[in-house]
């Protein structure tokens, strides 16, 4: 009151800031914006290199033909690796998503704040941080050595171990968003808890669960380390995951990138482009589902 009566309103423009303060503010804003550019630069570099170099390797034959056995030979494709990537990742999803969703149901619908549920929650967070190569070593020791051969299923199991904690945590987040009124309404109709959970809560959260799971699939599709440890190598189509060594795009990129020959490097770029396309399709579909059917927009 008193300030306004004497005629001069308070100066809110910031024009009379001391030079030092104004400069510090400008410099900080600039620095913060620079950080975004620093992060965007590698993404742009990767996108440009993969598209320009991988694009020239693209052809119909690249997607269908078998992989060349010699690093130096030109030609050949990535057909088996593309099929292998999709099958192994798909199998991993089939294993990990049901377990993950049920685990999340336990955490959110049954366990809640019980000590066991809290412990599982912490440990699945910890499991998210376990390096992928350790998962590969684990499946090698616990499965490959036991059955005596490397095969596609071993890779799927390793990827499933990687995906499990991600699916659990993202699903639990989604279940938490389901309003309690839905559960109470279902219970008031006389439905038992398992009915409520499977018939009301899960469908209400289904879009979020799908999008979270697809994101986990996209991550798993690009994993290399567990694949080279557990899956082995092949040059031909192996549609049967139980039938000996298999291969994926990521493993082919690693294998070909380490060679000094032009033909193998071109294959690596082509495989990188194919892999990025697969991963991005999963990611984009996941985002579309998440934004179209978001639970809070109903």
């Amino acid at each position: 009151m008193t300030t306004l009566t004497n005629g001069t309103p308070p100066d809110l423009t910031g024009k009379n800031l001391s030079f030092k303060r104004a400069a510090a503010n400008r410099a900080a804003t600039l620095g913060i914006a620079l950080c975004v550019l620093i992060a965007a630069f590698p993404l742009g570099l990767v996108a440009y290199q993969v598209i320009s170099r991988g694009g020239s390797a693209m052809s119909l034959g690249f997607f269908t033909e078998e992989i060349a056995r010699n690093y130096r030979t030109e030609g050949g494709g990535m057909g088996p690796a593309i099929v292998g990537t999709l099958l192994i990742t798909g199998m991993a999803a089939l294993i990990s998503i049901p377990i993950g969703v049920f685990g999340a149901i336990y955490l959110n619908e049954y366990g809640k704040t019980s000590p066991l549920a809290k412990f599982i929650r912490t440990m699945s967070d910890v499991m998210t941080g376990v390096p992928s190569i350790v998962m590969g070593l684990f499946i090698y020791v616990a499965y490959v050595v036991v059955i005596g051969e490397r095969n596609g299923l071993a890779g799927a199991l390793a990827l499933a171990c990687l995906m499990l904690p991600i699916v659990i945590r993202s699903t639990e987040e989604m279940l938490r968003l389901v309003p309690d009124e839905l559960r109470q309404a279902s219970a008031a109709m006389g439905a038992r808890k398992w009915r409520t959970t499977l018939g009301v809560v899960l469908p209400a959260a289904s879009s979020g669960i799908t999008s979270g799971s697809l994101l986990a699939v996209a991550r798993a599709a690009g994993e290399t380390a567990p694949i080279i440890v557990t899956v082995g190598l092949t040059y031909i189509y192996k549609p049967d995951l139980f039938d000996g060594a298999n291969t994926t795009l990521a493993a082919q990129i690693y294998r070909n990138a380490t060679q000094p020959f032009d033909a193998s490097q071109e294959r690596a770029w082509g495989a990188a482009m194919a892999l990025i396309m697969i991963v991005f399709v999963f990611t984009i579909v996941s985002r579309i589902i998440a934004s179209r059917f978001a639970i809070d927009k109903r």
């Binding site: 992060a39 590698p42 993404l43 990767v46 290199q49 991550r219 990521a250 690596a268 892999l275 990611t283």
Partner: peptide, 19 residues
């Protein structure tokens, strides 16, 4: 942009890095 950075497989970063 940050989400895309997270989805690029690590082997692709390695490929661009080494070549």
């Amino acid at each position: 942009v940050i989400d895309l950075l997270a989805t690029v497989p690590s082997v692709v970063f390695g490929l661009v890095g080494v070549l």
